[in-house]
Design a protein around this nucleic acid. Structure first.
Lengths: 347, 347
DNA sequence: TGTCAACACGCAAACGTTTTCGTTAAGAAT
DNA sequence: ATTCTTAACGAAAACGTTTGCGTGTTGACA
């Protein structure tokens, strides 16, 4: 007794009226008599009629669906962003379809092509590392050229003109490093990424800015630029070695700022193994408030990125754009404020 | 110079042939002469023609999209499952559209209705806690009745007939507790959930089973059933208090099995605060191999659920079903093996 | 020269909607 | 009795595809 989904046509045949009459009756059109309207609506309710979304999408030339492309989903920050996107999207009647680039340029391109052929109304995305390295952004440009709006978040690139949601990485890291300095640290190291990761670069700049404010001349020995490959899964030991080297070669380090959570946690672990007390001997601050920061021992002071808010802002930006009548091209960039969450890894 | 997406109709008009000729030429039909075929294909490539997905979906009555409903996305296990789903789905030409129930019955129902009206070909889902409490599964039944297949994973319910992907919770927890016992623990406590969470219940049974094997009579004082509300965000302190009470009232505890990662981490923290050494005084094992387990100090021995494999299996099951010709209703349940990952919280 | 394949292409239906524009019949107005 | 309005409904187009079938043109063959 499988009841397949019922269509307007079937209702029409059953009630011996035309398809248009059924459609109008269901939408409470004034053209339809009270009698037939009630008859149709009753029948529709009985058979649990719901308009077919695909047919509607085809007719209206909009799908009420937004595509999200992120580099990785097993990641606290990105999943928080998705939650934010999903929250406002659903509230405004939109669905969310996700694609993972897995940090790969090709997968990013493929995924966008898959979705750009009518499946979605617009994109929200964060750029894959490989794409940032190659600096090949033609797929973004083409998509925008075809009239499909894009909102970029977190990992953006200035060359592309579209709406953007970012945090003030420079300000956030400057705030963190300033905290360390005002807490009495004299030799603050930074553990960051190679410069092609835009956020890594900006956070390094914030670090330098803070030093400048405190009239400290930066010591390049205290700046550790980690190769990203090291983070991927099992290369953790080599990352540990690098950080251990940093500490060994600079015994005077009394503060560490790491541009992400994992670097910070590992720095704490290495420090502890070297017999250093946190926060007494070394104070540590991370970036991104994830589950690690909260539950580490000692719990980690960190710069909170407010991922969910970023997602919400991005979705709002995109949907506002989609539903706007005038075709004015005016792109806005929203900066989400960061927040220093003080825990036990600082004094 | 915005180039809107081009359609068959426009190509046809431009080349002064019929729409069907264009369509056939692009699909290399033998009905079309070599001449026109090349002409059409060249033109199509030039204008970067791609068939409209929505139109195809409407015509074929299948969307090549699968809907995933999960209770929460900011969660290591679920995001791993999604990654697995996405992996095989993409490989087989499917898109993934996600809905979050946020553990709420209503949101689960709404989300399913949104997607069930033609947007997707089938569901992969894990049931919300509230739904499990209320035991109201009519939305699943209706969906299946309408001919839309469902694959459930992790949190399932026997009452519904569909494909399922689970782990052997009982066996997994039994393995963990046996490990503690064989390591010399005499008084093993369990920190679990209320029984309506099926996995919590099963894991408790596994605990009891292991004790039985070792001919130990269970001590109800050592079984802590935590109220789930406590985990939600900021009720962590009360959770800590409960666990602290467990330790205080049972000074003889030398082993702890927790049914998830967080409980285990907090148990370790409480133990440490009470001056207990891990693993010397107390050995701890958790469930679910997340980022916390790996990076905690000491790192946590845990039962790995293989979330990604579960996602892959679920997607394979669903797509195989969708693409199967015969309409035989034969539902299978796949059990993904768990694995005990030994780290430093056990001897 | 007439018949017949083979070839190359167009028509139209179908998927499920919505909406514009007829069309019909009844009743009101002249 | 004739014209006009209005209420109530149906026909058809449109969204962009795919595909079965019909049709016209060509060349070959008898």
């Amino acid at each position: 007794m499988m009841k397949k989904k019922i269509t307007l046509k079937q209702i029409a045949r059953e009630l011996d009226v035309s398809i248009s009459t059924v459609s109008k009756a269901l939408r409470d059109s004034a053209e339809i008599s009270e009698d037939t309207r009630q008859k149709v609506q009753a029948f529709a309710k009985l058979y649990n009629y719901r308009p077919n979304n695909i047919a509607l999408s085809l007719k209206n030339r909009k799908t009420k669906t937004i595509g999200v492309i992120i580099p990785e989903i097993v990641h606290h920050f990105f999943s928080k962003v998705i939650r934010g996107i999903e929250l406002v999207a659903n509230k405004r009647g939109y669905n969310v379809i996700i694609g993972l680039s897995n940090e790969s340029f090709d997968k990013e391109v493929i995924n966008m092509q898959m979705l750009a052929n009518g499946s979605i109304d617009g994109f929200i995305l964060s750029i894959a590392k490989e794409t940032l390295q190659q600096q090949d952004y033609h797929h973004f440009k083409e998509t925008i050229n075809q009239g499909m709006p894009i909102v970029m978040f977190d990992r953006i690139v200035n060359e592309i003109h579209c709406d953007k949601v970012i945090i003030d990485d420079l300000k956030g890291s400057k705030k963190a490093v300033s905290k360390l300095l005002s807490n009495g640290c004299k030799n603050v190291a930074i553990i960051t990424t190679k410069d092609y990761v835009s956020v890594g670069k900006l956070r390094t700049q914030g670090y330098l800015k803070a030093l400048e404010d405190y009239e400290i001349t930066p010591d390049t020995d205290l700046i550790l630029k980690v190769d990203d490959e090291l983070v991927s899964e099992d290369h953790l030991e080599s990352l540990e070695k690098e950080i251990e080297g940093l500490f060994q070669n600079n015994k005077n380090i009394d503060g560490v700022f790491a541009v992400n959570e994992l670097y910070a946690i590992i720095a704490m672990k290495v420090a502890r193994n070297l017999g250093l007390k946190i926060p007494e001997d070394i104070q540590v601050i991370g970036f991104t408030d994830g589950v690690l920061s909260k539950h580490a021992t000692p719990s980690l002071t960190t710069v909170n990125q407010h991922g969910q808010e970023m997602g919400e802002a991005a979705a709002k930006l995109l949907i506002d754009n989609l539903e706007r009548e005038d075709e004015e091209e005016r792109y806005t960039t929203i900066v989400i404020e960061t927040e220093l969450v003080e825990r036990n890894s600082t004094k």
